[in-house]
Design a protein around this nucleic acid. Sequence first.
DNA 1: CGACGGGACGC
DNA 2: CGACGGGACGC
Length: 466
Amino acid sequence: MEEYTFRPSTDSLDDPPNSRLFLVTSKSIAEDVIREHFSIYGEIQDIWVVKDKQTKESKGVSFVKFAKSSQACRAMEEMHGKCLAEGTKPIKVFIAQSRASGSHRDVEDEELTRIFVMIPKSFTEEDLKETFKEFGDIEYCIIIKNKTTGESKGLGYVRYQRPSQAATAIENCDKTFRAILAEPRNKNVSSENEYFGNSRADHGVNDPGMSAYPFDGSNYSMGDVRGADIITRCLMVSSRASITQEQLYGLFDLIPGMEYCEVQRDPYGFSKGQAMIRYNNLGSAIYAKEKLHGFEYPPGNRLAVSYVDDGEDRSSPVGKMAMQLVAAQMMSMVWSGPAGAQLMKTGAGYPPPAIPQIPRVQTDVALPPPKKMAPSDSRVKERLFVVFNPAPLPVDVLEDVFCRFGALLEVYLVPGRNVGYMKFAERKSATEAMAALHGKVVNGVKMKVMLADPPKEESHKRQRTY
DNA sequence: CGACGGGACGC
DNA sequence: CGACGGGACGC
């Protein structure tokens, strides 16, 4: 263990980065004079006038620690070259070198005015400028692109006129941009990089198309549209393997509007492998039939879904034709995707019935309906640690499943491992997701769902500037 | 038992 | 030229 060392709680040396000023003044300038002139720029956490140990005389050097980098930068910009008292020399003001660096070279504006951001691939340089101009005068914006295809890499630089503007952007822009100060271009890779070439650019690890994702239910072709079919809100599900009420409910409830679900039982209480499902609207029933007929659930067990005559009055030929017309339109829409939906909208003269999302998950647990993800700048209140067997589920499936308990912030899969983390903005959402999903199977993948241990406190190598 | 990311610029 | 002190009481 280390010796006990005193760690001040308020100003941790240079936290946040670039929040401390280095002043060169006349030796007659005292702390109170500095405070007088600098406190208007923000919250001063510490002022230290360096003095000779013996004589106690000022060495004409001081440090001023602000709460924020933007405050320190502003003070530097405004105060550099000013005189703090009659007959004293103009002061010099710089951002202090970080204590650890050991260097006493002046920190130049060049290093303080350019930020590096992560942006959507669709962002143009104009988009970038529009987004970041609210924080200050932009000198230029550049997006890093693939040199051959011209495609954006989702990274950009924004150069501001002044350090305080760059600092303000880093402090206040949306967290999803991950804004940090850009490393200066010149002084590049020499010391801390490996000797073997570039590497590190593209680890193409998690290819979603290749992921171990045994069943997604999307490839099963639909049944023919036969005029003789009766179409009802009521469905019969047949399965050779026995399925519990809860499993079936969870599966068919993925389509909104289910109002009845019951597994048929024989006199001994065992499932006969048949169940009745009813939806409160025809569209959902049609959709369920087309999507779940032939669906493998559990994996290897193909479900058969058919319409059941529910005794509803269908005697009117007009009514029957209308229903079948609706059914045919919906199926063509499913076949041809959104374009078909557009055609139908204009062709039929009335808006199509709402089509639920394609069920992407099959699971042995009844899931609540999906909820919105938490805002991306929310604080992480709880993390779940999930172990997958035999292989991780795709991120989009995990988002779909874990978001249903609310406040899901992010899904992170550890590359090359069968584990991942689910970040939540609410503790309750996390614990409810854990209670509902631990030990359960989704798309053939069994999950262990536990509270994550706190991340290991690594040395603050990567400094964040907010 | 399984465990902690992501991001760098043709001079 | 102009660069690194102070000093502490909890889960």
